[in-house]
Structure formats: structure tokens, C-alpha cells
Design a protein around this nucleic acid. Structure first.
Length: 934
DNA sequence: TGATTCACG
DNA sequence: GACGTACGTGAATCAG
């Protein structure tokens, strides 16, 4: 063994870069024998092997190590809590591969270095310094620009993919300064990937210019008042703290204490053929095993041929049939432990919870089912009752053959919370919410409903019955057959356990089979990023929001209900008086007969069911003829407010929390929007004065306030970007009133002569464009002749020809591919696009609207996913989402802090994946209730 | 259960 | 030439 010193050459390989490159470059391979994801490991081994082959010549290194990141919290997070906060979560199928890449490195007999709480870059910096001080040369195998500050003085970088050396000149080419000033440039330019703020408005080019002129960052900041450009000067002076913070973030730490590793430990060693080949064989890499066996002059061990588990075609894989008789009833801890052990070993388990109801906030956990292999599933009954009802004396005994609830949960908790075991479920938000009330934080999760949503939105629903029917050709046991329906319906805890086992375990079995089918399809459908980045991470965020709920004041609602009752009774009397007879004002059928048959008012049109139409637009037209229609409109408005809001909302106040807990469906709307149910809190009135007062009942508790932030004109901004309309984009950049600007363009009216009416018409056209405009629709909306509306549209297309092109391109794309996409890759299928008749019109307009509405939905999803981390230091809770608005509750005094932070997250939510040509603007409000905050 | 109506973005 | 239309949702109500 030689002492590291002069003549030695150390190679430091950036392991994380290898892993991510391998993961993204390769399709999602799985180990054939058991389905373990191994695509990244395979790519990693190939890259290591290629590296070894490429570096065997006279320049071969004498010492080598692969360096990995370990842990997510580093000293940089202590400096700046937003450091790397933009990072998307590690894909679920990559996580189990991380330890395997360490194993692979060791199998190649290469030193493998990681240190808790340190980034690989700092370890590399430290080892490089040590090697230089000992007189050796260093090559850093990476193309990461963050490492370029280390280049020079015997240190070079090697881009292993391009096999290209990056030396001082290469760094100068990239940064415009020599390596010793790279951190200064990075500190100014910032980095959106790592979320290093830098100086706003200054990029690498400007930064390099400034640094070259002033020599270094310190001098530049000290003499910032001499910078000629006023904007730069102002930024440098005002953002000095932020820039200095950025410098500390990008500066690598080369003074780490590496007490357990010395350079001498890194000496190049020949791989041990048996060890390496055993590892590769175990991974079942056939080609690579053979290739390496040849290079090592060794015999390649045989890899047993096993039947492929997940089929590569669309056919269902060859699996045991679904057989409810084969499922296991777990009665004791001894029955359960083997299942749990197997789940740990496998790295995944399908989970389903059974409860006494559908409301996760109030129902009780009745049992849990698990599935580990197709056909191999069990059910753990927990509180099933012995009889169908309690007896006359109120006795209600538990059934035999159940584990005590606490014992079962104590055994399950470590499994459900184990970060190395994926918990698979269908609509996991439900199970996560139920389990969280029992002190279990289930993680990490995979969700078959969301996988289907990512792949099949627009094609069909994503409930388990639909998916099982379609993709497994199996109809699950209907829940009705166990619970009955209507008045005699029972709760799940009254279902005899032998029946419950069949039903519940089947659900877990089906979920597991769907997962095995869908998981490899995500990559092929090119929606892995959508699923991993927009669907899966939203589950815990929404679960927390729903559990938090919003405080609603029953007194306020009840007072309003009473007032509405009186007003309705009064209006009813007037209506009956005007009609000359009593009838049910709430019955469109009776109303139609009164209006058109008895009173013979004009415009009576019957729909396909033979009933007169009595919608608001019809009644508004009739209001000029008679007093009655107007009264009915008033009555309807109040009736709506009372029944749907002031009355129904009171019934949704949870008695335990005093708050209303909505439920968001993630996979409901085809465009990517959320939908709110039980109750729907996305349609609380705001447009009418009376309706808006209902928002006064949504309050913050004592000592807190509500804060609302909403995107301004987000869909029009997205349209301007996607259709690339320079006039609209410029208007948004200039912060103009977009509807007034449109009106000015279309009607040749100067902005300072704009009237509200002209602006209103332009606004209607702008909205019409988003919805897939038609002359008829615009005419009806604006109540103008159809020919005039068509004239507006023609003129609009003349002024903004890009819009017409965009619409034509979008429909052509939809026709060709039977789908459209958002800027973030969300896929919305449009199967009806080639239909004939009126359905074609619907499909076409939907296809035009979906990418715009969907992109807006993607953006706010991204903001919501980042929000919990971003506001972690503020005493605030995110409560509600209303498509382009987020509502928070916050301690009084911290409102402005929250607004600043949440605004930053929302306005930057598209980045770094999409760089919009228009700014996103968020407006904010605060108050004691929602009416004040909005 | 389906149609109608109307609340929201 | 006629069809029928703005896009996306959920809830309450009536009527069969």
C-alpha cells in the first residue's frame, strides 16, 4: 500500500448525479423474479462499468471513491429554510434503489463515502483539498456546475457522459470568470433548482460582467453605489443580505472533518469477481453480468429464468385467479406477524381500511386488510359486533376471533410508518385520514386511483369497481351485498366476519394487482412526473387541510336562515297573488304552466322532456312583461341560499371540532381541478350581495385571522403564454387591465376613453375564448344578436391571429392523438373529439379549454404541495382551495408574514419546470371572516 | 333516478 | 342545411 502523495491521482465520483441520470435515462425496469424496481441500479452499474473501462489506460487513477448525499437536512437549511425547497419528492420507485446503489459501489470494490447531514459536494471539496495538499492530482467525475468552484490548481472535472474534461478554461466558458470567482457569480445569479435566491434580475452574464469589473463580490457590494445602471445598483444595495446569504449557500465546505476516511483508504482495488458477479446475478442483470464476466475472465453465473411478473403488453399478467375463499382471517398476533414480516421483506404492501361510515372525520375503524402477493391477502377484524343489532338491554358484545384494537395497531404502526415499505391503496387519502385519528401516519404511499387518473383522465372514472372491471376483468363483491341499502342498511361492524374477510381482503388484493399493472405503465404513458409531482404528494397536503377544517359560526347561519324564511314566505304570498292561485313556486313544471299556459306569456319553449324551460335567463327576459317572473327569481335566489348554504351548512359542522371539514376529490374533474364535496366549499356565494354575506359565517377563532390569496387572471395569462400572443403577454408584463386593453384593441377605443360597457363586452369575449368561443354562446351571454357576436369574434381573431392558430392546433392535436396536454404534461383524453353531430362541438370546446384550465390547476397544485414546508415557521394553517384561491388561518400579527411567503410560493409555482412568458400575480386579503379576507 | 336549477372558478 | 352550443364542478329539489 502506497501513501497518498505526489504522483497519485484521485478520482471523486458524484454518485447522486449518476443515480438521477440513470433513473431518468432508463425505462422503469423491474426485477423479474419479484418486481423490485431496479432500473436506476442497472443504469448506475452500467455507468460505473463504463467509467472503469474508460479509465483503465496510462492516466488511470491511483485512488477513487464514489460520494453520495445522505440525509436531507444540512447546514445550508439552517442558514436558509427555503434551500432546495423547490425540489420534488424522490419518486417512489427510486427510493428502494438508493441503498442498492451503495451495494453496487461496494460490489465494484470502490470506496463508498457518505456522511449524515452533508452534501456530497462538501465531501468532494474536502477530499479534493486534502489530496492537493498531499501533492496529488484530482479529477471530479461530474458535470455539476456547483462543483466548478473547485477546478484549477491540479483539479479538473470530467463529464463522464461526454467524456470531456472541464478545466479552468471550461469553467470560464460556463461562468465568464475563473474558478476562484465562481461562487461570487453564483451568489449574484442564484439558482432556481436549489432555490438559492441571488440578486433578482441578475443572471450569470450580468454577474460575470460585474465581478470582472470590480474584481470580487466583496468589493462590488462595498462599492455598489458606483454601479452605473440604476436598477442593478438598487438591487445590489437593497438585496445585499440576500446576496451574502446566497454566497454562503453556494460556497462548498472543504474543511469537513473526515475522521473515518483517509485518502489512503481510497486506493484503487481490483474488483473481486465472485462478489461483483454475485451482486449482478442477484439483481438479474443478464447482459451486464455477461459483459463484466468477460472483462474479468470469469464464468458468468446462470440467472434462473422466471416467468415475467408484470407483463410488458397491455394484457393482464399471468396471476392466480381472484378467489375470496383463499383469504386469511387474522385472529391473533401470531397470525398477523408473518404478514408484517413479509411486507417488510417485500418493500410494499396493499392496505385497505374498513370503517363504520364514509365520513373519515367521524367514522370508526372496523378492520384492516393487507395484500402482499396477488391472491395472498388477509383481513384483521377489530370491532365487529356479535349480532346484527344490539339486544333489548343494550348489550352489544364484540364478535369472537378478533385481536384487541390496540394490539393490532401496535403491530401495524411500525409497518405503516416504515419509510422503506410502500403502502399501496385505492384512494389513500381516505385511509390516511382514518388512520391518523388512531395515531398512525401512513407513509410512503402509492395510490392506484391516482395512477389511473394520471393515465386515463377523460376516459372513465377511477373508482375501484370501474378499474377492476376494466383492467382485471373482475367484478368485486358489491358492498351492497353486505350492508344492504336504504333504511335497513347496516354498518360494516355488523357484517359477519367471514363475509367481511372475503370483501375486505379482495379489495386489498385487487388494489395490489392494479398497482402491479399500472406502475410500469406510468412511464410508458409519460405521466410519471404528473403522478409523482402533482398527484401523489398532494394526498398528505389535502388530508391535513380536510382534517383542519374551517370554523363556521352556527349562530350567524341560523339568523340568516330565519331572515330568509320570512322573506320567502312574503315573496310566496306575492307570487300567489300575482298568479291568482296557490302553487309550488319550487316546481319548475307548475311554474311553467302558470306562466305560459295560464298567463300566456311569450317565449314558452319546451325542452326534450316536454316541460317548459324556466331558467334564470328565461325569467329575466319575461321580467319586462310581468312582475311575477322577477319575484320568482328573488324567491329562487333566497331559497337556494337557505337550503344549500345557511341550512345545510349547519348540518356539516362537526360537533367535536365545531368546524366544517370538506372532502376534496383529487381524481374527480378530468382537467386536474379538485372538486369539493360534503359540503362543497368551492361554491360559497360571492357574486350577489346577499349571498356574499354567507361568507361572514366562515370565521377565524379567537386570536386568529383568515387570509385569502388568489391568482389574478391566471387562465388568461396561461392562454397568452400557450398561444404565444405577444400583445397579451406584453399587457400582462406591463400590468395593464387586460379586459380594457382587449377592448381598446378590438374597438379602437383609447384606454383613457374606455367605458365600463365596452370593457364588459371585451371581458365576455376573453372568457369566451378560454371556453372555446362560439357566436351563439357569446350572443346569449351578451344578449346581443348572433350576427353581431360573430362580428366581435371575427374581429378578435383578426387582432389576435395567434388565438385562432392555437385553437386550430389544439383541436388538430386532439384529433390526431385523442388527447390534449397541459404545460406540465398532464394528459386529458378526448375520446369524443371525432364524434359527429352536436357532441363534436362539445368535445372540441372541451379540448380547447382543458389545457388552459388544467395548466392553472397544475400550478396551484404545485403551490399547495410546496406550501406546508414554506410556511412551517409561521403559525398558519392552509384550510381551503377554490381553484385559483387558497384560504389560510393564521395567528393575528403574523398575517403579513404569511401573505409574503404564500404569495412567493404561489407566484413561483410554475418554476422551475415551466418558465412562463407572463408573470403570475397573486392578490391577498385578510380579515376576521371570509367576506373580509376575500 | 334523472332532469332542472343555480352556486362557484 | 340543420343541429345545438360557451369550460369545469356539486347540491338541492321535484317528479316519476
Amino acid at each position: 500500500m502506497t501513501q497518498f502523495g505526489k504522483g497519485c491521482h484521485l478520482h471523486l465520483i458524484d454518485g447522486s448525479a449518476f443515480i438521477f441520470r440513470a433513473y431518468h435515462a432508463l425505462p422503469p425496469l423491474t426485477r423479474k423474479s419479484d418486481g423490485l424496481p431496479i432500473g436506476a441500479v442497472s443504469g448506475f452499474c452500467n455507468m460505473l462499468q463504463k467509467y472503469v473501462e474508460d479509465n483503465a489506460g496510462p492516466d488511470a487513477p491511483t485512488h477513487v471513491a464514489v460520494i453520495f448525499d445522505k440525509g436531507s437536512h444540512t447546514f445550508r437549511n439552517d442558514l436558509y429554510d427555503q434551500y432546495k425547497a423547490n425540489r420534488e419528492a424522490m419518486p417512489e420507485d427510486l427510493r428502494p434503489q438508493i441503498p442498492l446503489t451503495r451495494d453496487a459501489t461496494r460490489a465494484f470494490n470502490i470506496a463508498c463515502i457518505e456522511k449524515e447531514g452533508f452534501e456530497a459536494d462538501d465531501i468532494i471539496a474536502t477530499l479534493a483539498r486534502q489530496a492537493r495538499e498531499a501533492g496529488g492530482a484530482v479529477t471530479i467525475v461530474s458535470s455539476d456546475k456547483d462543483l466548478m468552484q473547485l477546478v484549477g490548481d491540479g483539479v479538473v472535472m470530467l463529464d463522464a457522459m461526454k467524456n470531456k474534461i472541464i478545466d479552468r478554461d471550461g469553467v470560464f466558458e460556463k461562468f465568464g470568470v475563473w474558478p476562484d470567482r465562481v461562487v461570487d457569480v453564483q451568489a449574484l445569479a442564484g439558482d432556481s433548482v436549489d432555490n438559492v435566491p441571488g440578486a433578482p434580475g441578475i443572471g450569470i452574464k450580468t454577474a460575470a460582467l460585474l465581478i470582472s469589473e470590480y474584481g470580487d463580490l466583496q468589493t462590488l457590494l462595498d462599492q455598489a453605489d458606483t454601479v452605473k445602471q440604476p436598477k442593478r445598483r438598487q438591487t445590489l444595495i437593497e438585496k445585499r443580505d440576500q446576496i451574502e446569504l446566497s454566497r454562503r449557500l453556494v460556497q462548498l465546505d472543504d474543511q469537513m472533518t473526515m475522521d473515518d476516511v483517509t485518502l489512503d483508504d481510497l486506493e484503487v482495488r481490483e474488483p473481486d469477481a465472485d462478489t461483483l458477479l454475485a451482486f449482478l446475478t442477484d439483481m438479474e442483470f443478464r447482459t451486464l453480468t455477461k459483459r463484466i464476466a468477460i472483462s474479468l475472465n470469469a464464468e458468468a453465473p446462470a440467472i434462473p429464468q422466471t416467468a415475467p411478473q408484470a407483463a410488458t403488453t397491455e394484457e393482464a399478467p399471468d396471476l392466480p385467479p381472484i378467489d375470496p375463499a383463499a383469504y386469511v382471517w387474522i385472529k391473533t398476533a401470531d397470525d398477523l406477524t408473518p404478514f408484517i414480516a413479509q411486507a417488510h421483506q417485500r418493500g410494499w404492501v396493499a392496505v385497505d381500511t374498513e370503517t363504520t361510515g364514509l365520513n373519515e372525520m367521524t367514522c370508526d375503524l372496523v378492520g384492516v386488510s393487507l395484500a402482499i402477493e396477488p391472491g395472498q391477502a388477509c383481513y384483521i377484524p377489530l370491532i365487529h359486533r356479535a349480532t346484527a343489532t344490539d339486544d333489548l338491554f343494550g348489550n352489544d358484545d364484540l364478535a369472537e376471533g378478533q385481536m384487541p384494537l390496540d394490539d393490532a395497531l401496535a403491530l401495524l404502526k411500525p409497518l405503516l410508518e416504515d419509510p422503506s415499505v410502500i403502502k399501496i391503496g385505492q384512494n389513500m387519502k381516505y385511509d390516511a385520514k382514518v388512520l391518523s385519528r388512531y395515531g398512525i401516519g401512513i407513509t410512503p404511499i402509492d395510490d392506484t386511483m391516482l395512477m389511473s387518473y394520471a393515465m386515463h383522465a377523460g376516459l372513465h372514472g377511477h373508482g375501484m369497481d370501474t378499474l377492476s372491471d376494466r383492467y382485471l376483468s373482475h367484478t368485486p363483491i358489491p358492498i351492497k351485498s353486505l350492508l344492504g341499502s336504504g333504511k335497513s342498511m347496516i354498518t360494516f361492524d355488523r357484517v359477519p366476519i367471514e363475509n367481511a374477510v372475503k370483501y375486505a381482503a379482495e379489495d386489498a388484493d385487487i388494489t395490489l394487482r392494479l398497482w402491479m399493472l399500472f406502475k410500469p405503465q406510468l412511464h410508458r404513458a409519460r405521466v410519471t412526473r404528473v403522478y409523482e409531482g402533482l398527484e401523489r404528494p398532494l394526498v398528505p397536503v389535502l388530508a391535513d387541510m380536510e382534517r383542519a377544517g374551517v370554523q363556521v359560526d352556527r349562530e350567524t347561519l341560523s339568523r340568516m336562515s330565519n331572515a330568509f324564511s320570512q322573506k320567502m314566505a312574503q315573496l310566496e304570498d306575492e307570487i300567489h297573488e300575482l298568479a291568482g292561485e296557490k302553487f309550488n313556486v319550487g316546481s319548475p313544471k307548475q311554474l311553467g304552466e302558470i306562466l305560459f299556459d295560464k298567463m300566456s306569456l311569450p317565449g314558452g319553449k319546451k325542452g326534450k322532456t316536454g316541460a317548459y324551460a324556466t331558467g334564470a335567463d328565461v325569467l329575466e327576459d319575461l321580467a319586462t312583461e310581468h312582475d311575477l317572473p322577477g319575484r320568482v327569481l328573488d324567491w329562487r335566489q333566497i331559497s337556494k341560499l337557505k337550503s344549500t348554504y345557511t341550512d345545510a351548512l349547519q348540518g356539516h359542522i362537526n360537533p367535536d371540532t365545531g368546524r366544517v371539514h370538506t372532502s376534496y376529490s383529487i381524481a374527480g374533474a378530468s382537467t386536474g381541478r379538485l372538486a369539493s364535496t360534503d359540503p362543497n366549499l368551492q361554491n360559497i356565494p360571492v357574486r350577489s350581495e346577499e349571498g356574499r354575506r354567507i361568507r361572514e359565517a366562515f370565521v377565524a377563532p379567537q386570536g386568529r385571522a383568515l387570509v385569502s390569496l388568489d391568482y389574478s387572471q391566471i387562465e388568461l395569462r396561461i392562454l397568452a403564454h400557450m398561444a404565444d400572443i405577444s400583445a397579451l403577454k406584453q399587457a400582462f408584463r406591463d400590468g395593464l387591465d387586460i379586459h380594457a386593453m382587449t377592448a381598446s384593441e378590438m374597438f379602437n377605443v383609447p384606454m383613457d376613453e374606455m367605458t365600463p360597457d365596452i370593457r364588459r363586452q371585451a371581458k365576455a369575449i376573453n372568457f369566451g375564448v378560454i371556453y372555446g368561443i362560439s357566436g351563439f354562446g357569446l350572443a346569449r351571454n351578451l344578449r346581443i344578436p348572433r350576427s353581431e357576436a360573430q362580428g366581435f369574434i371575427d374581429r378578435y381573431f383578426e387582432r389576435f391571429p395567434g388565438i385562432k392558430t392555437y385553437m386550430a392546433d389544439t383541436t388538430a392535436f386532439a384529433k390526431e392523438h385523442k388527447r390534449v396536454e397541459t404545460l406540465f404534461g398532464r394528459v386529458i383524453h378526448t375520446p369524443e373529439i371525432s364524434a359527429s353531430g352536436p357532441r363534436a362541438g362539445f368535445a372540441k370546446r372541451a379540448a380547447i379549454n382543458a389545457p388552459i384550465q388544467g395548466t392553472a390547476a397544475d400550478i396551484i397544485r404545485r403551490a399547495m404541495i410546496r406550501m406546508p414546508q414554506a410556511i412551517a415557521g409561521i403559525p398558519a394553517t392552509m384550510l381551503l382551495q377554490v381553484h385559483d384561491e387558497l384560504i389560510f388561518e393564521v395567528d393575528t400579527g403574523a398575517e403579513d408574514d404569511l401573505i409574503a411567503t404564500a404569495k412567493r410560493v404561489m407566484e413561483g409555482a410554475a418554476e422551475p419546470v415551466v418558465k412562463l412568458d407572463v408573470p403570475l400575480v397573486v392578490d391577498a386579503g385578510k380579515g376576521r371572516n371570509w367576506a373580509e379576507a376575500h
